[in-house]
Design a protein around this nucleic acid. Structure first.
Lengths: 337, 337
DNA sequence: ATGAAAGCGCTAACAA
DNA sequence: TTGTTAGCGCTTTCAT
């Protein structure tokens, strides 16, 4: 293993000079810098992370807490995680992967041990038990998702309420008067993850303003569950012509079932999905959708965090504006009989 | 920040005693242990990770390199990553998340800096450029996936060849004589990821032994691409009655298209999928499938790695035996006309 | 512009 | 069974 001292000796300078060449924290003559950099390359020197963390009081590591469950938005979670990792590297940080399993203990362990300089929490619930710990520490953190009380916290999330409103307005604008909302599994609502409720709020207020009727039904996803849900919807509201789907694993089953029932999309029924673009494009009908900007969320979270670590900027709630892309699944409501 | 020295003082012992209480590397009298543990709790002490790594020469961190692409088996990747993280914690390790972006450089950086004690590589290609580096270092590593040459390496993977054979034998056993294989996107084959080719090898040898005809077609996935592929298959082999699908995003489109063409599953056509169980169960027809044991792969990889770190066990290739679950999508071949 | 030296908090000989 | 002490490799004052 090559040490800084060896590099120093090889370059004929002192250890501190090598350190400063590396950190750029004081000016170095061109010649010295050259020789040091040369030695570093020749010897294949890599600074020891532990020693750095100990002496420098920062590990250059960001902890990322991902949810343990794999029932919800897995590709989105993955995309966020990847975006976090790549963006973090861009700023000189590595990413430590924590699962929700340890729960609040993980927060204590990481803050206490100096393993990470800061953390990003995903899958935040409205009354998340990790929040008191975060508020009680001086370690910077960013949440992806919005808890009920955002006081003293930095959060990044899609503006779900605006997303719901956007979907509602789109369908209302096309003349639909009866809209069904196919939501996530009931467990998601029970968990109080926030985004589901917020989307619904947005939809409701849009419905109110446009005079549209809304029927909300959580759905486990999968073909059978969707079949049941769909039957109930048409039973209760036979005049339904618009669907908003916020459940990846219900999208394709819904389309298949509508087809099977002889309801054409978008001639008879319009469908708007809230899902990753990839899903919207690969579906059997190209779906009008609001995308979940996973990459953007990961990137923004890291950027906020780095800003905090650099002493720039404080707490802030960043809500990303939703964008609706019109594709083949939505059109004018059919003329009433 | 609480240090070991403070704990020692509080408990009225020396620093080394505290250290040994923590590591268990020498016997401590019950009374002393009590007092030390008490002090640790009272003061809320957490050992400093950097100092530990520096003095102890191990960081207790495992690096996990995940693929940057999100085109392939995303939920599987995520499940593996989560299994790695939770299993690692079980053994006292944390996980550092590296993306493929840095490529071989990441390996150098991590090995060189002592950031991680060992690494796990996912998405290994047949001629992976990271392999020479791994062979040239004394840092333990485990690959998830099989390169062309496994000499001097430890690998964990599903036995894809046996998987292919299992699918082929299942359909052959049901009397199918013409089988079509819907594979991953062409890009996957071009990338030489190994698993795709190996599956095909297994299928081919099963076909040879059972006298079945095989037609292999890569497919981009999605509805449109699948429609095209399917048309070509029936064009070329009108008597096709069996399908093996190794492409998550082709599964549901295939089922929808068959339905649309009036081909009943499994009465007219049988379908066997190679995919996560969740996909098989949620499909519009419950699919006979070989599951991809993501959790098991992650867990086994960590266990092999920890064994190596503890000086137990050396290089080894662990191939997990595939298991085929019969569901509703496969049945006897229809009687020939 | 550069060097010398004092730690950072912990582990692991070496002593007792 | 416990204490003393010398580092681990780096950063950062304080000097020059």
């Amino acid at each position: 293993m090559v040490t800084l001292a060896e590099v120093a000796q090889h370059a004929g300078v002192s250890a501190s000079t090598v350190s400063y060449v590396l950190s750029g924290k004081r000016s170095i003559s061109a010649g010295t810098r050259q020789r040091v950099e040369q030695s570093i390359r020749e010897l294949g020197y890599h600074p020891n992370a532990g020693a750095r963390a100990l002496a420098g009081k920062r590990s250059n590591i960001i902890a990322l807490m991902i949810p343990l469950r794999t029932d919800l938005y897995v590709p989105v979670m993955m995309e966020i995680a990847i975006a976090v990792a790549t963006t973090a590297r861009t700023h000189g940080y590595d990413v430590l992967l924590l699962t929700g399993e340890e729960g609040p203990d993980a927060v204590r362990r990481v803050t206490g041990s100096g393993l990470a300089d800061a953390m990003i929490l995903m899958d935040v619930e409205l009354e998340d038990e990790r929040l008191p710990l975060l508020r009680g520490t001086d370690q910077p953190s960013v949440l992806i998702g919005l808890p009920a009380d955002t006081g003293g916290l930095t959060c990044v999330d899609l503006d779900w309420s605006a997303t719901g409103a956007l979907c509602g307005e789109h369908l209302a604008g096309l003349g639909h008067r009866d809209i069904a909302v196919i939501g996530e599994a009931p467990a998601v609502y029970e968990r109080h993850t926030g985004f589901a409720e917020r989307t619904l709020d947005g939809l409701r207020s849009a419905a109110r303003e446009t005079g549209v009727r809304l029927l909300h039904r959580p759905c486990e996803g999968g073909y059978d569950a969707m079949a049941l849900t769909l039957a109930r919807v048409f039973d209760e509201r036979p005049g339904t012509t618009g669907f908003v789907v916020q459940n990846e694993s219900a999208v394709e089953p819904l389309l298949a079932l509508l087809r099977q029932q002889g309801r054409a999309v978008p001639e008879d029924v319009s469908v708007v999905a809230i899902c990753p673009d990839q899903v919207a494009v690969q579906a059997s009908v190209r779906l009008t959708s609001v995308a979940i900007p996973a990459q953007e969320m990961g990137r923004r979270a890291v950027e906020r965090l780095v800003a905090k670590l650099d002493g720039r900027g404080g707490d802030e709630v960043v809500l990303l504006a939703p964008e609706l892309t019109r594709r083949a699944s939505s059109g004018p409501a059919p003329a009433a009989d």
